[in-house]
Design a protein around this nucleic acid. Structure first.
Lengths: 147, 147
DNA sequence: CACAACTATATTGTGCACAATCTATTTGCG
DNA sequence: CGCAAATAGATTGTGCACAATATAGTTGTG
C-alpha cells in the first residue's frame, strides 16, 4: 500500500472548514441577536444592500449559493420584520422582486460595525484573512466547476 | 472618515467561508448518500474511528464542536442504522459511552475513498489545502479563545 | 396559434445547529 | 452525613439547508 499524504490531509480539511464556518456564524448570530436577526437573514440583507436595485430570489440565491427552498422562508421573515418588500415582476410573473424598505436601509447603519467586531475578536491578522479569502475563492471556483 | 480596508475584507470573508463549507458538505453528502449517510453522521463516525476506544457524547462534541442537542439525534440515527452502540457509563451514570459496532467498522472501509474523491473533484492543490488547513486552525484557535 | 419544454418560485419532508431548559448524577464542603 | 453547586446528557422550539416535487408562467417550434 502506497503512502498518500494528500489523503490524510484531505481527511483533516473538511472538519476544520465545517467547524470554522459554524463558529463564525455563531459569533455573528450572537452579535446580531441584538437586532433579532439570524446570520442567513443578515447575509440576505448584505446581498440586497450590495446591489444597485431590487434582486430576484434567484439572483440572491446565486450570490449566497442558496436555493428557493431556503430563501423563501428567510425572505418571509425579513418581510414580516419590515426590512424587505416582495412583489411579482410585472414583466415576468414567474419572478419575485425583492427590495429593501426604508427600515431595511436604516438597519444597514445599525449593523455596519458587526463584521469588524466579530473578526477583531478572532484575532486573525489582516494578511491571514486575505490569504484565507483567496483560498476559499479558489475552492468555490472548483466546486462551481463540478456541476 | 478614514479608509479601513480590513473592514471591507472582513465583510467579504464570512460569505465565502459560509458558502465553501456548505459546498463541501453538499459534495460529501452526494457521495455518502450511497451509504444512506449524512455528513454530520459521517463526521461523528470519523471521530469514533479516530479514537482508540469508546467516546462519551461530550468527547465527540469537543472534537466536532457540537453540543448534545445536535449529537443526541445524530447518535440515535447511527444506532438505528447499526453503526454505533450507546451505553451508560457504569462508573459515572451521567455519561453515555458511544462505541462503533462491527458494522460500523465495516463501514469504515466502504467510505475510505470518499475524501479523496471529493477533494480531487474540487481541483484544489495539495499545497493550497495545507495552507487552508493552517489558516482554519488559526481561526478556530481564535474562536476558542473568545469564550 | 397550439403545446411541449423550459424557467422561477413555492411547498414538503428530513436532518441538522443551537439556545434554553430539564433531569439525573456526582462532587465538593461545612 | 447532608445538601448546594456542578456536570452530562436529553428535550424542546426555532430557523436554516437541501432534495424532491408542485405550480404558475414563458418561450420556442412546427
Amino acid at each position: 500500500m502506497t503512502d498518500r499524504p494528500q489523503l490524510a490531509l484531505a481527511e483533516q480539511l473538511c472538519l476544520p472548514l465545517y467547524a470554522a464556518a459554524r463558529g463564525i456564524t455563531r459569533r455573528y448570530a450572537e452579535v446580531l441577536s441584538a437586532e433579532g436577526m439570524t446570520y442567513p437573514q443578515y447575509a440576505t440583507m448584505l446581498a440586497l444592500w450590495d446591489a444597485p436595485g431590487p434582486l430576484t430570489v434567484g439572483e440572491i440565491g446565486e450570490r449566497l449559493h442558496l436555493d428557493s427552498g431556503t430563501l423563501t422562508p428567510v425572505l418571509k421573515r425579513l418581510e414580516n420584520a419590515g426590512y424587505v418588500a416582495r412583489q411579482r415582476d410585472a414583466a415576468d410573473e414567474r419572478r419575485v422582486l425583492v427590495r429593501t424598505t426604508p427600515e431595511g436601509e436604516a438597519l444597514r447603519g445599525r449593523v455596519a460595525d458587526v463584521p469588524e467586531r466579530v473578526w477583531a475578536d478572532t484575532g486573525l491578522q489582516v494578511s491571514d484573512a486575505r490569504e484565507l479569502r483567496a483560498l476559499l475563492d479558489r475552492l468555490l471556483s472548483g466546486l462551481d466547476a463540478i456541476s
